[in-house]
Amino acid sequence: MRKQKQQWAGWGPAGGEQAQQHYLVEPRYLAGGGDLRHVTEYLRASGWKDKSKTGGPVVFESPDKSVRLGYDPFTQPGGWTLSGRQTPVQGAWHATLSRQTPVEIVAGVTDALTRPRSAHAPNVWAPLEAQGWQMEQGRHVTVRSADGDAVVRWHQSGHGHGHWWAGARNEHGKVWEAFFTPTTPMHLVEAFSTALADPQPVMRPLGRVPPSQRIRTTSVSVRPSELSAWQQARINAARAATWARSSFATTRARTGPGARPYAAKAGRPR
């Protein structure tokens, strides 16, 4: 593990606070699980309902009740599950991401669930290839990171069926893996691959950095107010986007899709 040290460029005056040691970790896919609230608080701010029971697994449900997110630390192998129910335009789907999948990568998928789909056709491979990941030809379509420690694969079975699989490993073995059923909406798998390939490091507090020689770390001093401000900015962004969508939907419902509410009434010339 290679280390560097620098002072974190903060969001404001220190105010007498005691700075705490954190680490910027790269590549992000070997950074360890991270803080669950990076995922759950964004969903909460986006209008998802917290269905968790005290002492039990984390459970969140989308506003339209079409998707359910779970995180279970009590079972083996445990980790994240995402389930989408069948709709008139989408088959039922399921995804699992194991416990040590970095929350920033999980959030790539869950954040995308809170936004309207893009008009462009999804391409799972494009974000990976843009960051220098290499495609391998064979029975299964595989793209591997430049360091060889992370893989995304379209796994084709002998019966014409297939599924998406991804995983990462370090010198100690498998770190995490993710599985998406064939019916998983492609824009969600693309969002996953985009977050996975993102070259930006992720932050972990002292004591939460994996013991691996495959990662690079930069030591930074962070004041609690700085960390809180960064977390709050993410939550505020979710709330703003949710409000904007709600406001647009309300206006559209009142005026109708083709209405021009400010158009002047036509009159006969005099």
Rank of each mutant, 00 (worst) to 15 (best):
K3F: 13
K5A: 15
Q6L: 13
P13W: 00
E17V: 04
E17P: 03
Q20M: 11
Q21I: 12
Y23M: 06
Y23C: 08
L24Y: 09
A31P: 03
A31G: 02
A31Q: 01
Y42L: 14
R44F: 00
S52I: 02
S52C: 04
T54P: 05
G56N: 09
P63T: 15
D64V: 12
S66K: 08
P73G: 12
P73N: 15
P73D: 15
F74E: 12
L82D: 00
Q86L: 00
V89H: 13
Q90M: 08
A95E: 02
P102E: 00
A107D: 05
T110G: 09
D111E: 14
P116E: 15
H120Y: 10
P127Q: 01
W133H: 04
Q134P: 00
H140C: 02
V141T: 11
S145V: 06
S145Q: 05
G148D: 07
A150W: 07
A150L: 05
V151I: 15
V151K: 08
R153P: 03
W154S: 03
S157N: 12
H161M: 08
H161V: 03
H161G: 14
W164K: 02
R169W: 11
R169D: 05
G173F: 07
K174G: 05
W176C: 09
E177M: 05
A178I: 01
M186H: 05
M186T: 04
T194V: 01
L196G: 00
A197M: 06
D198E: 11
Q200R: 15
P201T: 07
R204K: 02
R204Q: 03
G207H: 03
P211Q: 15
Q213T: 11
V220T: 07
V222Y: 01
R223Q: 04
S228D: 09
A233W: 13
R234K: 14
N236F: 07
R239I: 09
R239Q: 15
A240P: 04
A240L: 15
W243A: 15
S247C: 06
F248N: 13
T250I: 05
T250E: 13
T251R: 09
R252H: 10
P257S: 12
P261Q: 06
A263L: 08
A264F: 10
A264K: 11
K265R: 09
